[in-house]
Nucleic acid binder design. Structure first.
Length: 632
RNA sequence: GCCGCUGUGGCUUAGAGGUAGAGCAGCUGAUUCGUAAUCAGCAGGUCGUGGGUUCAAAUCCCACCAGCGGCUCCA
């Protein structure tokens, strides 16, 4: 995204044959050669233009070009490669001498990988004949982007020096390959998803159908991919989750703030940070300045902390923001439903701590918070697998600390270790949800960051009167809100596959009680019951509505079931007289369906089960006949 | 971003060179109903968008867009 002007360019053609003949000099001092013509059968021809930027990091350019060519060649199962200098692919060519060196280097590397390589001479006009196979993979062009090289190589390094283990509750460290996964099927799926990058071939994600059917969220074709629309019910569910997470973080001591969603790309602190991760942001031009949309809440909070006067007495200092939104320009092919988005809502609480001891103590406090928040959101320990990521050294020195985390979770975890610290954090965990397609997605996470206190020049005055940089913990207690909804829906989809009724938690259900009058004359009784129900307590609101449509009772029940309404009550003569109700409970976890309940009993039933969660009214008409259909 | 598949009223879909057809939802009317679909009628479609081939294109070709699957990626 930054330097798209300067790239090495490759055009790869799978051909029956390629042949060339050297004609005239194209540059002053072309490569000396006796070979005036060449031909190769069943070859991958790589037309290559080496560009200016490649000169700056020739080794990386070579490495990437080789890996790109190798990848395609192995897909096509070809051994013959013709390396063909082709200046016309670029308007920003490298110095010829350097370019020639790079080409020779590529040739050498490819030969090392046991390809049969020919290279046409550099700096000559040549005539050539090529017979292209014409199948879909036969013509490919590639750009080697130097801006991405840094991350690319970083990641390769990371992979090279990553060690994967399973850490059990009793503190035994198993090699992933040797661990017996019996009884830990999801951990196995997760471990292989992470380590081997193996992907199961399954149908489309279950939550996408559900989010549309339940009128929660949908794609918005008029926006960029991964920017969703939320219908009233979806917005309501999302708001409740947002409110709940915020409430828990505030109880923990988080100071809620709000910071801008866009930042100057040339800001000295930010630009350095950005350079490590180019080509992943939305950019906005305003007058002559360029801004990027934030991809996390860190920037605003760190800049705020930078300007604050902080004493050791204030630590740990916890700053919280629920970002609406954070933006990441994920690759288009990577976007799916609510799982992976380009704009998402992220609760993010940072804790500024004085030293590693305080950081680790705080880490523990937040670990409990995260487990509790996730559980209350409806994601149980059985639904998630934990990954711990750290360096070998940190593990060695803090083994007991790690094992204690595992014990709290109550099951083995995946642990990734590096020889040296590669990222800014020294310890990180995430809880990953495994869905029906065996894909793993991170929800809650926390990490101990030992770099950014200094990078952002955040300071606090310590006991000894000296200025020091804090260690910063980055935590999202729930993960992206959209992703929480995704996990809840996927979880219910898995239930449906087992023949069970799906349901959202009672506190999240937009409608908690649906009243179905047997006939028009009972509509006013339904209204009365709703009034009485909410007169029981002025602080606790029960979300109820009335299906006043001109439909049969069975039809209304069917529709209520399709909407996952937790409690359905038919109202007729009997109820009018007795004021006793025999509800249909969607799940036996709410209550028994056979018994009769008074309004007070129903009120109590719901309020005890939604205690501690946000109690909101929903902005939808109480009468179903007044509601538009947003989908279907 | 790359490779492949898909794209027909709000939804689910039939049609495979020759006048776009259905079910659901919507509207109107009848029915006033006790635990998963009451009946009838009406209206609704530039066949994802833009080009091209053809006497004729939803249908064949090209490009683009979107969704899905895979690759890659996931700070």
């Amino acid at each position: 995204m930054f330097y798209r002007v300067d790239l090495m360019k490759l055009l790869l053609i799978h051909s029956d044959y390629i042949e060339y003949e050297v004609k005239d000099k194209a540059i002053k001092n072309p490569e000396e050669t006796d070979v005036k013509s060449g031909r190769l059968e069943e070859a991958l021809t790589a037309f290559t233009a080496v560009e200016q930027i490649d000169e700056k990091s020739p080794k990386k350019a070579v490495k990437q070009a080789v890996s790109e060519i190798e990848k395609i060649a192995s897909q096509l199962k070809i051994k013959n490669i013709m390396l063909y200098p082709y200046a016309h692919l670029s308007s920003n060519l490298a110095n010829p001498k350097k370019a020639q060196e790079i080409l020779i280097e590529i040739e050498y590397e490819l030969k090392n990988k046991h390809f049969s390589v020919k290279r046409s001479p550099f700096g000559w006009y040549k005539s050539f004949k090529i017979s292209c196979k014409g199948h879909p993979l036969s013509e490919l062009s590639r750009e080697i982007i130097p801006g991405e090289e840094e991350t690319e190589s970083l990641k390769q390094e990371r992979k090279l020096s990553s060690y994967w283990y399973i850490l059990t509750e009793n503190g035994t460290l198993h090699d992933v390959g040797d661990f017996n996964f019996k009884g830990y099927e999801n951990l196995k799926k997760f471990a292989f998803y992470e380590k081997e990058k193996s992907r199961a071939i399954k149908g489309e994600p279950a939550h996408v159908t559900l989010m549309q059917k339940l009128e929660i969220a949908d794609y918005e074709p008029a926006s960029d991919g991964g920017n969703m629309r939320f219908y009233p019910k979806g917005r309501f569910i999302k708001k409740l989750i947002e409110d709940y997470v915020t409430q828990r973080v505030v109880e923990y001591g988080g100071l809620e703030v709000e910071t801008p969603i866009m930042y100057d790309m040339d800001h000295p602190t930010l630009s350095k940070y950005l350079e490590r991760f180019p080509a992943r942001q939305y950019q906005i031009e305003s007058d002559k300045r360029n801004f990027f949309l934030r991809f996390a809440a860190c920037f605003g909070q760190f800049l705020m902390a930078h300007d604050a006067t902080i004493s050791y007495k204030n630590l740990p200092l916890k700053i919280y923001e629920l970002t609406k939104y954070s933006f990441r320009r994920e690759q288009s092919g990577e976007l799916t439903g609510l799982r992976r988005l380009r704009a998402f809502t992220m609760p993010d609480v940072h804790a500024f701590t004085s030293d590693i001891k305080m950081a680790m103590d705080e880490f523990n406090v937040r670990y409990d918070l995260c487990l509790s928040v996730q559980k209350n959101l409806g994601i149980e320990n059985d639904d998630i697998e934990m990954a711990l990521r750290t360096t070998k050294e940190f593990y060695k020195n803090n083994k007991d600390f790690m094992v204690a985390l595992v014990k709290k979770l109550g099951k083995p975890v995946l642990i990734e270790m590096w020889d040296e610290r590669i990222f800014y954090f020294i310890l990180k965990y995430e809880f990953n949800f495994i869905d029906s397609s065996e894909k793993a997605s991170a929800l809650s996470t926390d990490q101990i960051d030992i770099e950014n206190g200094e990078r952002y020049n955040i300071k606090f005055t310590d006991k000894d009167g000296k200025m020091k940089h804090p260690l910063i913990l980055h935590c999202s207690p729930s993960g992206a809100i959209e992703r929480v909804i995704y996990a809840l829906l996927e979880k219910e989809a898995m239930k449906m596959n087992k023949g069970k009724k799906p349901m959202l938690p009672l506190w999240l259900s937009p409608t908690q009680i649906r009243l179905i009058p047997v006939g028009d004359e009972f509509i006013s009784d339904c209204e009365r019951f709703i009034d009485e129900l909410n007169k029981v307590s002025e602080y606790q609101h029960i979300r109820s509505d009335i299906d006043d449509r001109e439909e049969s009772v069975s039809r209304k029940i069917r529709d209520a079931e399709k909407e996952w309404i937790p409690i359905i009550i038919v109202v007729g003569e009997k109820e009018k007289d007795s004021k006793k109700f025999t509800p249909r409970f969607r799940s036996s976890t709410i209550s028994d369906s056979d018994k009769a309940y008074s309004l007070e009993e129903l009120h109590k039933l719901i309020t005890t089960q939604t205690k501690g969660f946000p109690q909101e009214k929903i902005a939808l008409p109480a009468y179903l006949s007044k509601r538009p259909k947003f989908k279907g």
